[in-house]
């Protein structure tokens, strides 16, 4: 079953008097349980593609359908709800809230999805336990290693059980061991029926993904 289907996505930025095409006519579909890696050099349009898939950046033309819902037909004000419902994000720089503990960082997403109080706290604990951070629930990001931060980030992305995980360079700031641990967790997430799209330069992810597509000058070439 297809989780996300992007059809003929094009994004054109206007810079001064020139139109710059960041992504051109890109089509991509992923099935539930599948991990797809989008690889390409810097400036090839990977982040732009990821932003359009994640309901953050409106494409100039083309459509994105997640779980049967045509995302870009929605009103701009409805996009936060779609992101809450369908997408879990993992960022290269983790983007954890420094003032919150590991558990609270996960709880924030659960709160946004309508789960509050003890139930949210319990669920955050369960998710962090799943990524091997049960002893670190009350640690703040500054007290966690890079690998641990990324695992909190994965737990956060899994919060609320979204069908799609979008990961931006999830292993870029990690050593081999931590990178492998992160990919194993993403593999587990996919095994539970989610689609995972990874944007990366890192060839170490190759053994963990089902499919790799190449983005060059805004075009998907393989």
């Amino acid at each position: 079953m297809t989780t996300i289907e992007a059809t003929a996505l094009t994004k054109v930025y206007r810079e001064a008097t020139t139109d710059v095409v960041a992504v051109r006519d890109a089509s991509l579909a992923t099935a539930a349980g599948e991990i797809v890696a989008v690889m390409g050099p810097s400036g090839s349009g990977k982040t732009t593609l990821l932003s359009m898939l994640g309901c953050i950046l409106r494409p100039t033309t083309g459509t994105v359908t997640i779980d049967g819902q045509r995302v870009w037909d929605s009103d701009e004000r409805d996009l936060p709800r779609l992101r809450r419902r369908y997408v879990g994000f993992i960022f290269q720089s983790f983007n954890l809230f420094p003032a919150l503990t590991a558990a609270e960082n996960v709880e924030v997403v659960l709160n946004l999805k309508g789960l509050d109080g003890r139930a949210a706290r319990r669920e955050a604990g369960r998710l962090l336990e799943r990524v091997g951070l049960a002893p670190r629930l009350d640690f703040r990001p500054r007290d966690l290693s890079g690998g641990e931060k990324q695992r909190v980030s994965i737990a956060r992305a899994l919060a609320g059980d979204p069908p799609l995980i979008l990961a931006d360079e999830p292993t870029a700031n990690l050593d081999a061991s931590n990178g492998e641990q992160v990919m194993r967790l993403l593999r587990e997430a996919a095994a539970q029926g989610r689609s995972v799209v990874i944007v990366t330069h890192d060839h170490r992810v190759a053994p963990w993904v089902d499919r790799t597509v190449l983005l060059e000058d805004g075009r998907l070439v393989a």
Partner: peptide
């Protein structure tokens, strides 16, 4: 600002 950006990305509304 980056935290506000993250909040928006994970689904927070402007009102939040």
């Amino acid at each position: 600002l980056r935290e506000f950006g993250t909040l928006k990305a994970i689904g927070a509304t402007n009102r939040m």
